[in-house]
């Protein structure tokens, strides 16, 4: 799995949870909070991505990434380490 594919997965699950993003072009520098995802939405999105790729990351480690590019990078790193 590539970082780009993970980014697409994050975008897909973000559209499921947050209204009004159907036409939004996601880029790596997008911040979920700026897109309208509250803390619960963000936890939900992160869990949906983890379920999609069969990965379990402790919640506390998810506070690090500052945008969805970094989040995809973290998931990629965990996937490669697994």
């Amino acid at each position: 799995m590539t970082q780009m594919e993970l980014l697409d997965l994050i975008a897909q699950h973000t559209r499921e949870i947050v209204p009004g993003l159907d036409a939004h072009q996601f880029v790596a520098s997008d911040r979920l909070a700026d897109l309208g995802a509250n803390s619960i939405d963000r936890a939900e999105i992160a869990m949906l991505v983890q379920e999609s790729v069969g990965l379990s990351v402790p919640r506390v480690e998810l506070f690090g990434p500052r945008n969805i590019g970094e989040l995809a990078g973290l998931f990629l790193q965990k996937l490669n380490a697994a």
């Binding site: 939900e44 949906l48 379920e51 379990s56």
Partner: peptide, 12 residues
């Protein structure tokens, strides 16, 4: 069989 992926919103 996969409790690790339980949705956080279950708590609500």
């Amino acid at each position: 069989d996969s409790p690790a992926f339980l949705r956080p919103t279950y708590a609500l």
